[in-house]
Design a protein around this nucleic acid. Structure first.
Lengths: 279, 279
DNA sequence: CCGACCCTGTACTATTTGATACGTTTCTTG
DNA sequence: CAAGAAACGTATCAAATAGTACAGGGTCGG
């Protein structure tokens, strides 16, 4: 299956019987909307019978009508999603020449992530993250632990009661004992999802802990117990997934929280600076 | 029914029960592909039951699932058919998000960083990083420690002798004692540059250690003793600098090293996977 | 601590939908 | 012009799908 559906149609149009050719024309007329409807509708719009449509689809090389529709959907989504990032981002930065496809993919991921991340959703995160009465516990996996640390380091500057869950997995439980409804567990989990993280999140949820999850678009199983979910794009042309979009979301969140924290945070930062400069 | 489906979702997300919210997240995660599939598939991807999906669709204001799918198809086709309209939509959503300036600055930083980062420079990094005879020590500062950890976690997969320098600053010296000419110190340092890092790098350099520095465009003092310097853009409209470009450089470097390592790395990865699955 | 309410999944039903067999028509070709 | 083949539509079937009733479970308020 090389080219797009419309290309295959153009290629095989000559070798088609009259009825199927009418079907082809009807489909191309306002491509590809009719192809996404039912066979009966397609047939009516084309002025032929249902079996003709099915034969037409078969001739194009599809096993059944469902395969045909899936192909249409895929190329449709591809067309919509890729221009969104290509036209806006790469053009504005005007550096498509020397930048590797890997980096372009990452930039695309970031753009896509924020395109799907509504402002309202970030706003809701304020409640658990900015509330000084709550305690924040951050946890990451094999690679995402670095993200948890990074976020924790910044959160500690603008508020108190920030804890990073580190060390042996068996030691995590010690921190779980003291958690309750006023605690928040911020967990990072992307493919391949770590069982230990899932278990831990489930136990925490059972204790009434509010779970905030940062994950990829395929959603970690933790999503089932999470109250807040932030989905980020991670796919890149490489052996692994990229966490760059998660990283940027964290930075954006921190920046937002800082600017909204206002005087309280400023005062806190000043104190911290004083402590650092004169120990 | 004024806006697009995604807008309606964002609007009513707050008033949704947990299950339907999961459905919303799954849909937004890679919008709108899942919504075009069957109810059962949608349900499975979202981790909920079919009726929940139907209730979710009802809550969005659609009479039945078919109406919902038609709406998705229509806005999809509209975007594809009129590029003019599409750019308008992108602009409005981007500006409406509000996060745009911050995120755009980060994306700009990444693009700028790689524009100035010659491929030859990355190539030169192969010598110290890929050489199995060398030992790699990674060190980061207050915030950049997370980057050091992230890079170390990935490097450990494709090669041996990777050490992250952690813990008390006074303990760092213990690791310094064993360093020599065949050792490599990878250090992350951005504003405001940490004295402790600078001192450590200087001492290491004095022992003949090869220094690889990841820093911002204003150059950490460590640059004076570093053999390899990677400069990244960090400025963003926020209280702090952004480390996102450093993060992406690290990921790009790791990806490059992995693909070039070839069979040796593949074998190593396979062994690691075997160890992980059967401890 | 208990009851009412809302949410959620299981099991089932009714319907739509894709797919097929077969007879009729149309086109082609010797 | 006639014989054969190819194409097309009608009628029908089987399977997958959307939709619904109902009961268990969790949560919030009293």
């Amino acid at each position: 299956m090389a080219g797009s559906v419309s290309e295959v149609i153009a290629e095989k149009l000559d070798a088609m019987p009259a009825g199927e050719r009418r079907a082809a024309h009807a489909l191309v007329a306002d491509y590809p909307l009719i192809g996404l409807k039912t066979v009966a509708e397609f047939a009516q719009r084309a002025g032929v019978s249902s079996p003709t449509i099915l034969r037409f689809v078969n001739r194009l090389g599809f096993q059944n009508y469902a395969d045909f529709q899936s192909a249409l959907q895929r190329e449709l989504v591809q067309q919509v999603q890729s221009p969104l990032l290509r036209s806006k981002v790469v053009d504005s930065t005007a550096s498509g020449n020397g930048v590797s496809p890997f980096v372009q993919a990452i930039i695309g991921n970031i753009a896509e992530t924020f395109a799907h991340l509504s402002q309202a959703e970030l706003q809701r995160l304020r409640e658990p993250l900015a509330d000084p009465k709550r305690r924040l516990h951050l946890l990451g996996g094999r690679f995402t632990d670095a993200l948890a640390r990074y976020m924790a380091a910044h959160l500690r500057i603008i508020r108190a009661d920030v804890f990073h869950i580190a060390g042996q997995e068996s030691n995590w439980r010690d921190q779980l004992v003291d958690m309750g409804k006023r605690d928040v567990l911020i967990v990072f989990d992307i493919r391949r999802y770590q069982e230990s993280l899932v278990h831990y999140a489930q136990r925490a949820a059972a204790r009434g802990v509010t779970i905030v999850l940062f994950t990829d678009q395929w959603l970690s199983p933790i999503a089932r117990v999470a109250k807040h979910i932030v989905t980020c794009r991670t796919a890149v042309p490489s052996a692994w997934d990229s966490s760059a979009s998660l990283f940027v979301v964290v930075e954006a969140l921190i920046a937002k929280l800082t600017s909204e924290a206002g005087q309280d945070a400023s005062k806190r930062i000043a104190e911290l600076e004083a402590l650092r400069s004169a120990p």
